[in-house]
Simulated assay, not measured.
Amino acid sequence: MNTVSSVAPVISADRDALRRDFPHQPFAIRHKLAGHPLLMLPRIAQLAAELPRDLIEYNSGKVAISQDPDSIPSVDLDPVEIVRRIETAGAWMVLKRVETSPQYRALLEDTLLSVARARGFNSMADAGFEQLEGFLFVSSPNSTTPFHLDSEDNFFVHVHGEKFFTIFDNTDRSIVSNDEIERSMTKHRNLTYDESFASKGKEFHLFAGDGCYVPYQWPHWVRTADSFSISMAITWKTREVRRLNDLHFFNSMLRGIGLPQQPPGLQPVRDALKLAFYRAVTAAIRPLRASMAMRRVLRRIALGKRANYYLKET
């Protein structure tokens, strides 16, 4: 590890937590992004108008923690109106892959670079922060994000309002089984939640300037309080995370044609063969993903008929 000069961090955390818990345990962070022009409603509305439609997902915020994916209530507004009317829209929205906008990419890179330097690295690559992506969340008052898990590591920064973010141990298979992990990553992210899980969760009570680190595949659910909310997930994928994700997706595809699969890690030789084949195929079709229409077709082929569930015209 290299020693670098001290730089005022965008994201900061207790040094012991950063050294002891990262990247395997959640912990609280602070940040300097509250009030940033790119994270205010007028600019977010502009971003909603610029992004491809398949990078925007929204629905009613009045959902259960254990929400059935097939019965999520919708909101009959377009994405820009959702942002403009977020205080009264009763909605939850995520703008995905915001790093496709150069301004947002610069913001994400500066923020994550400050963490890399705080850990003693000269660059994000040295710190293992690869495949940087950003997800911007806008939620109406008293909205719920159902119980789910994500396929990347995440510094979650809260910018406006009050939010409760509850995280659960991803090694506890009494909470989420291996089959549910695969399904959540490849079909629909929502997981089944039982009230008996409540005592096992770690809750972060967030205001503007607060946040938390969410490790790879740690299940969580979120709710807002009595004001609208703006938050951003600053995510990355290490080489190992990309390997695990590719195996989960290929296992899901094989399972879909009637071939049961073991979770990643139980059969290393087979994992290596599957990974090589899957990556060769995905590399061949990658140029097709430039078209939104083809992205929809490919998602449907790989993930099933409901892969484009968040597009109203589906």
Rank of each mutant, 00 (worst) to 15 (best):
L288T: 13
R270Q: 13
P264C: 11
F277W: 13
G256A: 08
R279L: 03
R286S: 13
Q267D: 14
Y278T: 06
F277D: 08
M294H: 09
Q262H: 15
I257T: 06
G265H: 04
G258K: 11
A290L: 02
R279G: 02
V269H: 07
G256S: 14
Q262D: 13
R279M: 01
L259E: 13
I257A: 08
P287F: 07
G265P: 01
Q262W: 08
L288V: 14
A290I: 02
A276E: 10
Q267L: 14
Q261H: 06
Q262E: 13
K274Q: 03
A280T: 09
L259G: 05
I285V: 13
A280L: 12
D271H: 01
P264T: 02
P268S: 08
P263Y: 03
I257D: 03
L275C: 06
R295L: 02
A283Q: 11
P264A: 06
S291H: 10
P263C: 04
Q262L: 15
I257V: 15
Q262V: 12
R270W: 10
A284V: 13
G265D: 01
T282Q: 10
T282R: 08
Q261L: 03
S291I: 15
V269K: 10
A272Q: 11
G256T: 06
D271Q: 03
G256V: 09
F277L: 15
A284Y: 06
Q261W: 06
G256C: 11
M292H: 04
F277S: 07
R295F: 00
A272R: 07
Q262G: 05
A276N: 04
P263N: 03
G258V: 09
Y278M: 07
G256N: 13
R295W: 00
Q267M: 11
F277Q: 12
A276K: 08
L259V: 12
G265T: 04
A284P: 01
I285W: 05
V269Y: 04
K274C: 06
K274P: 01
M292V: 11
S291A: 13
M292T: 09
R270N: 08
M292G: 01
A276G: 03
T282H: 04
Q262S: 14
V281N: 01
A283V: 05
L275P: 04
A280S: 15
L288N: 12
Q261C: 14
L273T: 14
G258H: 08
A283R: 09
R286Q: 15
I285L: 05
A276H: 04
L273P: 07
A284H: 06
I257W: 11
K274H: 02
P263W: 02
Y278A: 14
G256P: 08
I285P: 00
T282V: 14
K274E: 05
M292Y: 07
A284K: 10
R295P: 01
Q262Y: 10
R270H: 03
A280H: 07
L273V: 15
Q261T: 12
S291G: 10
G256D: 12
P264K: 02
